[in-house]
Design a binder for these strands. Sequence first.
DNA 1: ACATTTTGTCAATTATATTTTACTTTTTGT
DNA 2: ACAAAAAGTAAAATATAATTGACAAAATGT
Lengths: 67, 67
Amino acid sequence: MAKNLKLKAARAEKDMTQAQLAQAVGATRQTINAIEKGEYNPTIRLCRAICRVLGKTLDELFWEDEE
Amino acid sequence: MAKNLKLKAARAEKDMTQAQLAQAVGATRQTINAIEKGEYNPTIRLCRAICRVLGKTLDELFWEDEE
DNA sequence: ACATTTTGTCAATTATATTTTACTTTTTGT
DNA sequence: ACAAAAAGTAAAATATAATTGACAAAATGT
C-alpha cells in the first residue's frame, strides 16, 4: 500500500491535526497516522467517518487502482 | 447497518453467485453473505476488490449517509 | 413434487484492525 | 537557538474482521 497523501491533503485543507481528526471520527491518533502512512487496511466504517469529517467521498480518499 | 442491496444488485447484474464473487475477490462466501446482510464492517481492501470485480465504485456500493 | 443450487446462519478458530502507553523525531513559531 | 506542538514509531493488549466446517432454509429448474 502507498502513502495516503490525498487524506493528508484533505486534512491539511481543513487545518486539522492527526489528533483532532482522530477525535472527530472516534479513533486514535496512531490509527490515523498509520492510515496516512499507508501501511494499513482500515475498516469501511472508519473510512466513511473520515470522509464525512473532511467533506470528501470514498472514491476521492480511498480508491486505489493497484492493490 | 442496513442491508447492502446495491451490492446484491451489482452482483446480480454480473450473474454471479455469492460463492463466485467470494472466490473472485479472495474471500469466503460467508463474508460476502454477511456484507450483503449488512451486519458487517468489512475492510477497505475487500471493498475495493469487490468494486473492481463488479465494475462499480466505492461510492456506488459502500457509501452510507447515516451510520 | 423432486433434485439441485444458492442463500442464510451458527459455533469455533485465526488473522488482523484498533487501542493504550510511551518514547523519539520532526515541524512550527517566537 | 529554544520551546512547544505535531508527527512518527513501537510493543503489548483488546476488539473484531475473516476463515473453516457444517447444516438448515429458500430459491431455481425440470
